[in-house]
Design a protein around this nucleic acid. Structure first.
Length: 855
RNA sequence: GCCGGGGUGGUGGAAUUGGUAGACACAGCAGACUCAAAAUCUGCCGACCGCAAGGUCAUGCGAGUUCGAUUCUCGCCCUCGGCACCA
């Protein structure tokens, strides 16, 4: 009912013609999976609290909402239920929009957008062409998971234990020509700029830095012996060239050109490589697979001792994507290499590094941190004690001096492959012509829209089969040509939507005035699971837009709050063949704890397997629908409870116990306000003529106001803000003072309580503010100022410790000096009995807090 | 495997800069009100010892730094997230 008042006056619609300072609050927009879940409630309530708080603080707040609307689930729905992805998606958007609106969020819905809207795709295609012209786009070969039965590309998520999720067939790694964004060219800038992200969580900055993975090392060439023509040299990159003296073998990735060149003449290597290609493409799968290798028979000469020849192996743990796809192995100082040589009976060279002052270690690999001083037992240069870093530089200098290698800086960050062999994504505006190659679609012919008449009867991308759409004349030569049928990675859609929100209807990707006014996003809020990819891609795109002249800024998000995930139990059945099936915890009758947890499906009484706890996700079907909560208790209670249940950054294991407590609190607040107003308006407050109890309540009131402002505004610890107001309300309930000044204090307290709670429970606050006798809506109210005079105290309680243990409390004058504190402390009977007869060796005084007597 | 978090009563959590461990809630127990129940209100609520006053132990485990450690350092265990085609 009260939401109507907000909507009629359009209080949350914003524009940039406003004298107030701007504040842009954004939560990561949802994928329209069907219905909102608890993670959404948590995320969007946090954003709403910040938005409403900032508005009350006098900011012109932009708080928009949209839909990350392309993606695989829509295609799955099409395959399973025959509904068109667009229809499925827009229906879900309608449902979820209704649900979000029932939460009473202070959103500017006039800016709503969905990434699958043709207008959004059109602008994204313009950006793609800008990037192509600016040299940020390249075409190159990269690996995908190939399902040989369904003859289709699989996402990593669709590969389960190395098999396709539908066909059950072992997947193969396959090379495809794909479009990439050259994000690695920006690695250094993206890394350096992390220092400036001072309002991002340290953990996210660390994860991003590690992901970019700058390293300095030695790149050098082994001279080969017995290699096929064209492989006279084997390029190797290492970050530990100081271990080169310990090299006992070299190894290449199964995808390395040398390994491939050997396949035709060597069936066992061909078989080994083929086997390795069945691991899939994910780094996790490659790194956790059993370490295996095969000898090629080729040898390389050790660059520092050409008489020493090392065998060259193909090994499944070498990543083609990192370094040169070839390494040397040093078993004495790398545990993985040691395991490998032991497994295959290769020689282990004796150790040549030892801890400074320690003895050499022989039974396991000794891997000192690079910063630590190490004694080089068999020296690269001079037998000195030096840090790994110094030794690395010495080894590089040696290699450069002898001319077999040189120092290089490399990054772990790889280019961003954006091609997806799928229908439900933004079309890539390219036409392939036999004569002209890849030709951009002319800008006046944008957007390239997806054809609606597609069928999902067969696996694979229906665009590949849609000749009416696919076959077009070449824009350059007019000859027969075909459209690019790959669509863009959905990460592209979410890498610039924050900028589009500043001018969602512009017929260019962004509008200079709007984006200049609103960007950066002042507060971005979203799940910690996006700490690396989405946030890094967005940082990249913002720079690309800058370099293309679309924005002036480099960083999209000034302040970042990474919300902890909402977890729930996972239940599934895994049939012998075919697709794994997940069940919502609400459908399962469960018993036991931990390892012994078991369950049966309520509908058929048959057992289901317990998969531990994990994030609520559509694919695992373990989400909780908050609608029941909202229907039963109202949006305010749902909002209050999710904010109170845990600190924002913590994971939250879902349970709906405790919702009753939030509801009870709302009722208590309601009752206490109405108990107060039934006696009519309160008189004027005269702060200087209050009784001690009235003064004490006012002090607590203004302490709470200061804390709540700090908790919301600076700390973003919404749970402690609510707890403080609960504590205050408990005090108000005990405050039974009907005198004129008692009622005046109560009026002030209830006014401030309602204002403090209004960002959390806007509907109730709206009604209670009216009940308290105010004519204007609470949503237009400014955040109240703390009365510093009310906080003043004559005496303070300090705690007294003896040898660090609590032994008493004493009241002393506020601002007392150490001598006075000491006298008061030692006079306390509880203290003196522990000090009596002993020598005071030390006296610690923390003014206003504690003293510690050390005896 | 690699990178990054988290671990505090029966439960969610608080302790903001190294300074009272357990605020605020949930659950539970007892009482008041009621014919009764619900709702509401009041009290108790980490473990152990003690009639009590009070004391001892206790923040995943083990060490360390400090007058003082949930907080800092090192090692370990468990768990969650990410690992480039889930979003």
């Amino acid at each position: 009912r009260w939401q109507a008042a907000w909507n009629e006056t359009a209080v949350f619609q914003t524009d940039n013609d406003d004298p107030r300072p701007k504040y842009y609050v954004l939560e990561m927009f949802p994928y329209p999976s069907g219905r909102i879940h608890m993670g959404h409630v948590r995320n969007y309530t946090m954003g709403d609290v910040v938005a409403r708080y900032k508005a009350a603080r006098g900011f012109n707040v932009l708080h928009p909402m949209g839909w990350d609307a392309f993606g695989m689930p829509a295609e799955n729905a099409a395959m399973e239920r025959g509904v068109h992805p667009a229809e499925w998606t827009y229906q879900n958007i309608a449902t979820m929009k209704r649900q979000l609106q029932s939460m009473g969020l202070s959103l500017d819905w006039s800016r709503e957008l969905a990434t699958c809207d043709p207008e959004y795709s059109a602008q994204q295609q313009r950006l793609f062409l800008d990037m192509l012209e600016a040299g940020f786009v390249a075409r190159r070969s990269s690996t995908v998971n190939w399902d040989p039965v369904d003859r289709t590309v699989l996402a990593n998520e669709q590969v389960i234990d190395g098999k396709g999720w539908r066909s059950g067939a072992p997947v193969e790694r396959r090379e495809l020509e794909q479009w990439v964004f050259r994000i690695s060219a920006m690695a250094e800038e993206l890394l350096e700029a992390i220092d400036g992200l001072t309002k991002w969580p340290e953990k996210v900055r660390l994860m991003q830095a590690n992901w970019i993975g700058r390293s300095r090392g030695l790149q050098f060439a082994f001279e080969t012996v017995g290699a096929p023509p064209g492989f006279d040299r084997l390029e190797v990159y290492t970050t530990r060239p100081d271990t080169l003296m310990g090299a006992t073998f070299a190894a290449v990735s199964p995808d390395h050109p040398l390994a491939r060149a050997l396949e035709p003449g060597n069936p066992s290597i061909a078989a080994f490589n083929a086997e390795c290609r069945r691991i899939g493409t994910s780094e996790e799968a490659l790194e956790t697979a059993e370490k295996r290798g095969i000898d090629t028979g080729i040898r390389v000469r050790h660059p520092l001792d050409p008489s020493l020849e090392l065998p060259v192996w193909v090994a499944n743990f070498i990543l083609m994507d990192y370094g040169t796809g070839a390494i040397f192995g040093c078993p004495a100082h790398d545990q993985r290499d040691l395991d490998f040589v032991r497994k295959y009976g290769l020689p282990v060279i004796d150790v040549y590094m030892a801890a400074d002052g320690g003895e050499p270690v022989h039974d396991e690999a000794y891997v000192p941190p690079k910063s630590e001083p190490v004694r080089y037992v068999r020296p690269v240069a001079g037998g000195a004690v030096m840090t790994g870093e110094e030794a690395v530089e010495a080894a590089i200098a040696l290699a450069e001096g002898q001319g077999f290698g040189h120092g290089v800086v490399r990054y772990r960050l790889r280019d961003w492959g954006l091609s997806r062999q799928r229908y439900w994504g933004c079309p890539i505006p390219i036409i392939h012509c036999g004569a002209c190659g890849a030709v951009p679609v002319p800008r006046d012919r944008l957007p390239v829209e997806l054809p609606r008449d597609v069928d999902f009867d067969r696996p694979g991308n229906p665009l590949d089969r849609h000749d009416a759409w696919r076959l077009v004349p070449c824009p350059r030569c007019g000859g027969a040509a075909r459209r690019e049928t790959d669509t863009m990675d959905t990460f592209v859609d979410s890498s610039w939507y924050f900028a589009r929100f500043t001018a969602p209807r512009a017929d260019t990707p962004t509008d200079a005035a709007d984006v200049g006014y609103w960007m950066n996003v002042d507060q971005y809020i979203g799940g910690i699971e996006h700490a690396i990819l989405h946030l890094l891609y967005s940082r990249f795109w913002t720079r690309v837009m800058r370099d293309c002249g679309l924005t002036a800024i480099s960083e999209p998000f000034r302040r970042l709050l990474t919300q902890g995930m909402v977890l729930n139990e996972i239940w599934f059945r895994k049939p012998a063949s075919g697709r794994i099936a997940y069940y919502n915890p609400a459908e399962v009758e469960a018993a036991g704890e931990g390892e012994r947890r078991t369950g049966v499906l309520k509908s058929d009484g048959e057992p289901v397997e317990y998969g531990g706890i994990g994030t609520m996700s559509k694919s695992r079907r373990n989400g909780v629908d908050p609608q029941a909560l909202i229907d039963r208790y109202g949006a305010d209670t749902a909002r209050l409870f999710t904010m109170f249940a845990a600190p924002p950054e913590h994971t939250l294991e879902w349970s709906d116990e405790g919702v009753e407590g939030a509801f009870r609190f709302m009722r208590r607040l309601w009752k206490i306000v109405h108990a107060h107003v039934q006696f009519g308006p309160a008189g004027e407050l005269r702060p200087d003529s209050l009784e001690p109890a009235q003064r004490a309540l006012r002090r607590q009131l203004h302490q709470t106001l200061a804390k709540v402002g700090d908790d919301i505004g600076r700390r973003r610890t919404f749970n402690t803000a609510i707890a403080a107001v609960m504590e205050l309300l408990n005090a108000l309930a005990r405050f039974d003072d009907r005198s004129a000044q008692g009622r005046a204090v109560m009026q002030e307290a209830l006014d401030l309580v309602v204002l403090m709670l209004s960002p959390f429970v806007p509907h109730a606050a709206h009604a209670l503010w009216q009940a308290l006798g105010h004519a204007t809506p609470v949503v237009n109210e400014r955040w109240p100022a703390v009365d510093q005079a009310a906080l003043a105290q004559d005496t303070v309680e300090i705690i007294v410790q003896v040898n660090g243990r609590l032994r008493g409390r004493v009241q002393i004058a506020a601002g007392a000096d150490e001598a006075a504190a000491r006298e008061a402390a030692l006079a306390d009977p509880g203290v003196s009995k522990f000090v009596a007869g002993q020598t005071v060796r030390k006296f610690v005084y923390v003014p206003g807090k504690l003293v510690n007597v050390v005896v």
